[in-house]
Design a protein around this nucleic acid. Structure first.
Lengths: 124, 124
DNA sequence: GCATGAACATCGTGTTCATTT
DNA sequence: AAATGAACACGATGTTCATGC
């Protein structure tokens, strides 16, 4: 009976996946990147804050940005710098959708900051 | 062979459980509360920010604060206001541990705020 | 119905394995 | 080894069920 079993979110904090997608879009807006290069960059950025994402999560984010959000397209490119002959690079396919997605995430980030700051105010 | 299979955390954002424990401790410091009453209070507080915790999560937090953190003790109390004859109320058992736990959570909340604000700065 | 608790189900994501270069 | 991807496994938490007032 088309039982659309969608599990409800209680709306706590933003998911890592969305957080990474945001960074990935911004990074790709500024140039060509491929999976592991993005991961390196992200790890370097977040390590001082105790967050170290995994490679699989970056790949999942990339795949979804391509197949579900339809924001990115991929292509293979021969890269001299990389050890591998071919590398999967992404570029923005739909700038409108990219901006729309980023806007959504921004709204949620703002909400999350409020939630955390409220906790700091209420308990300390 | 005592294979301590601890799954690594990548250190993204704070877990709902810890977030709720913090609020529960503070609420109990300020008076007597029982599970569903706490839930009501928390839901009311967070609903404007789109977060609505579930009853089971509050109970799990209470149980862990009693059995694992050993911060709370429980007792049953007959309450006139409630429909039920007896209700499970908690009070602080170890104020030292309570403060220590809150301090830990505060550190993590501060870190999380930084992570989110960094994302806002880096992507917008 | 209110209150508590546990059992069950599932999403998000960490870990491991496979494949290619 | 670097890179990509998928399979597998498990923790966190949402949902449902059981029990007693």
């Amino acid at each position: 009976m088309m039982d659309t079993n969608k599990r409800e979110s209680t709306g706590f904090l933003i998911k890592q996946r969305a957080f990474l997608k945001l960074y990935i879009i911004t990074n790709i807006e500024n140039g060509r990147w491929y999976g592991l290069k993005l991961l390196d960059e992200l790890k370097k950025e977040f390590k001082p804050l105790g967050f170290e994402p995994q490679h699989s999560e970056v790949y999942r984010a990339l795949h979804e940005l391509e197949d579900e959000e339809e924001i990115l397209t991929k292509g293979k490119v021969k890269v001299a710098g990389a050890k591998r002959k071919e590398v999967v690079v992404y570029k923005i396919k739909d700038h409108e959708k990219a901006q729309a997605y980023k806007k959504l995430v921004k709204t949620d980030l703002d909400r999350c900051v409020k939630l955390l700051q409220k906790a700091l105010k209420d308990n300390f």
